[in-house]
Amino acid sequence: MQIECLDISYQYPQTDIYVFDHLNCRLTGPGFHALFGQSGMGKTTLARMIAGELTGYSGLIQSSEISKVLYTHNMERFPGWAGIGELMASTTPASGRDRLNAMVNAFGIQSVMNARFSQLSLGQKNRANLIRYLIQEFDLLIMDESLANVDETTRGRIIINLKTLYPEKSFLYISHNMMEIAKFCKQIVVLRSPGKHPPAQVISGRNLMREDDLVIKELEQTMLEIVHAS
């Protein structure tokens, strides 16, 4: 699996401001990768370009061994006319039925499956939304702040679960939590502040599979690299 952004330039319609100016980066292999950067650096824009939801940029995004890319963000909602369990069941492909229950239990939302989306807490909403994407067919899932409003412990548990349950899939996780991405991600694309060249830098994360494997010194080193890059 590989995604490569080659010489990407993009400016928002009817503005002179470049979000990306000759951006290059490459992510290789399945696993949990991250897209990091300060607010307004274009993380969501790049994610939508990779997902094919945004066009009008120059340059090329090429991928190999990736045919289905899904993009999800934390502002998504379920329709309000039925409970989330019913809605999830109606959009679960045959191949994902067994996995649905496992995900619901792993994400800790089994007690609210009959509730309407509007009745859930923000964290429950984000988890429910993520589950319905995870049970779809995909090669790369882009998670744009998908675990926002979920407590740190649960977030860590969910990420480790994803890495265990989907060893062959690729994830691109967008988060502002530097420690989290440094700990769990394999490769981290850092979108740098304006004026810095090159505009993006790829850093290797600790890619932990268990919290116990954490070596503080190594984590600090990775975080330092991210800070320097950004």
């Binding site: 998504e76 329709p79 006319w81 939304n129």
Partner: peptide, 25 residues
């Protein structure tokens, strides 16, 4: 968009669902 995105991304959107979502909202 916040509701329709999932159905569009997973290619499940059809005119009936679209009308239902917009009318309900």
């Amino acid at each position: 968009d916040s509701i329709e995105h999932f159905y569009v991304a997973t290619k499940r959107m059809n005119w009936r669902l679209q009308v239902r979502i917009r009318a309900y909202e």
